[in-house]
Structures are given as C-alpha cells and as structure tokens.
Computed example of a mutant assay.
Amino acid sequence: MSMHKKLMLAAAALVFATAASADKLRIGTEGAYPPFNQMDTSGNAIGFDVDIANALCEKMQAECSIVTSDWDGIIPALNSKKFDFIVASMSITPERSQAVDFTDHYYTNKLQFVAPKNVNFPIDKAGLKGKVIGAQRATIAGMWLEDNMGDVVDIKLYDTQENAYLDLTSGRLDGMLADAFVQYEWLNSDAGKDFEFKGDAVFDGDKIGIAVRKGDPLRERLNKALAEILKDGTYQKINAKYFPFNIY
C-alpha cells in the first residue's frame, strides 16, 4: 500500500473516531417521577422522558446512555459534565435559564391539587388555611405554594414525588400540589384510588424543556431532532403510550 493511501486511511480513521466520540451522549434524568422517569425492576430508567430522549438520540444518530441524579443536584451535575443534557420534566424558568440553556418545549404542564375524595378542599386562602400541603422540593409546585399560600398553609417539601405521596396516603398531608400529568398517573394507580383532583389548575402553560450547558451547540441539534419527531409522528406515538390526550 502506498504511503499516500496509508495517510488517507489514517485520516479517515481519525475522523471516524472523532465523530463516534462526539456522538456518544449521556442523558441526565431523575428516575423517580413516574410516568415521566422512573426505574424498572431491573434498575433501568423508563418513562415518557426516557422515550423522548431516546427518540431524539436516534434522530441525531447518537449513542446515548442514561445517568440518574437526585433532583436537587441535577443542574450542578450537568454543569460539572456528569452528563450532556437533562431530560427530566424540567420547567423552563428565568432562574434556571441563568444556569443552563433550554431547548424548545417538549410538553406543556399545569399545577393542580389532589386530596382525599369526599373532603371539602376549597382552593383559596380561606379554604386552605391551616392545612398541611406537600410538594417536591425545588419544583414549580413548591415555589407556587411558598409564593401564594406560604402565609396560611404548612408546606412540606420532599426530595422525591414518591415520598410526598407516601405521606399523603398515610394521612400526614391534607393535600398535594404537583404537575397535573404526574397527579393523573398517580390517581389512576392503586395507591391513589381514594384521592381526586381538587379545583381547577392553579398554574397553566408550564413549558417543559431539555437543559444543556450554557452555549452548547447540542441545543440546536436537539431542537432539530425534536421538530423531526413532532413532524413524523414519533412524538405522538410516545404520547399515546402514556396519556389518552395530547400533552404537547
């Protein structure tokens, strides 16, 4: 083989290796927020967020792996490069946008209370005065409670949504405020059968996005892939797997 051909092959191998390396991406998620992200009995992350993330990776022709993180530390973990992007039902907020960049939204949520059936639960300050209300820490729900009901209710914040539901079913909470689609999933489970939505949504139009490190061009790749799965029906198939209504 001529030296010229050897150099060409070496150069091609280098380009291939660099491309392969660049297309190995790590997805950060919580793993404790069903039906969006949770762990199955084999210890694998599953859920709507995971399915969306894998569909985006397929469009980007990237080899992706899942890394789980506690919710409280998920943005610092992204910025310390423990993973490359977060798909964990994260609301796009001005505060978070100071630390990370967000893609276009991949679904839209709202906040709604749940409480035991046949219990009077007016959604106003007079009706909630003195009640113990739970929410997950560092979420829109927790912030809404503190901003709007902090002077009249006893707010209990939890590390995971699952732990909050345990206290609700055991009677240590009078009610819970959380994302309506998470509440919907729980109300349809055996654990939530004695509970129901109370009142209308108190906050609507909450946009959920994918977080990347500031200035990372991966954001545009993800936006392009998101537009593709919305256009070709992939998104709608994933949506229908979890909900009988459109959450986009």
Rank of each mutant, 00 (worst) to 15 (best):
M1Y: 04
M3P: 06
H4D: 07
H4G: 01
K6M: 11
L7A: 12
A10W: 07
A10N: 15
L14Q: 08
L14N: 02
A17W: 08
T18M: 15
A20G: 15
D23V: 04
K24T: 15
L25A: 05
T29H: 15
A32V: 07
P34N: 13
P34R: 09
F36Y: 13
D40L: 06
S42F: 07
S42D: 11
N44F: 10
A45L: 11
I46A: 10
F48E: 03
V50L: 12
D51L: 09
I52C: 09
I52T: 05
C57D: 01
E58V: 03
K59W: 01
A62F: 05
S65T: 03
V67C: 01
V67N: 00
W71L: 15
I74K: 11
P76M: 15
A77C: 04
N79P: 09
K82P: 02
F83L: 04
F83V: 01
F83W: 01
D84G: 04
F85T: 08
P94H: 03
E95Q: 10
E95F: 00
R96I: 01
R96C: 05
Q98T: 08
Q98V: 07
T103E: 08
T103C: 10
D104I: 02
Y106M: 00
Y106F: 12
K110F: 12
L111M: 09
V114I: 15
A115N: 08
P116H: 12
K117F: 03
N118S: 14
I123N: 01
D124K: 05
D124Y: 00
A126P: 00
L128W: 02
G130S: 07
G130I: 03
V132N: 00
A135R: 10
A135I: 10
Q136K: 06
R137Y: 13
A138N: 15
T139V: 05
T139G: 04
I140A: 15
A141T: 02
A141Q: 09
G142Y: 03
G142F: 00
E146V: 03
N148V: 12
M149V: 15
G150M: 04
V153K: 07
I155K: 14
D159L: 13
D159T: 08
Q161W: 14
A164K: 08
Y165C: 11
Y165L: 06
Y165R: 05
L166T: 14
L173D: 12
L173T: 05
D174F: 01
G175F: 04
G175E: 09
G175D: 11
M176V: 14
M176R: 09
D179A: 13
A180V: 13
F181W: 03
Q183T: 08
E185N: 15
N188W: 13
S189A: 08
D194C: 06
E196T: 15
K198Q: 14
D200E: 07
D200G: 12
A201Q: 02
F203G: 00
D204F: 06
D204T: 11
D206W: 00
K207D: 09
K207H: 06
I208W: 00
I208F: 14
G209C: 07
G209I: 09
I210H: 13
A211Y: 03
V212N: 03
G215A: 07
R219E: 06
E220F: 06
E220R: 10
N223C: 01
A225S: 08
A225P: 06
A225F: 05
A227D: 04
E228R: 05
K231G: 00
G233E: 01
Q236V: 04
K237A: 14
K237E: 14
K237Y: 01
A240Q: 13
A240I: 00
K241G: 07
P244A: 03
I247G: 03
I247K: 12
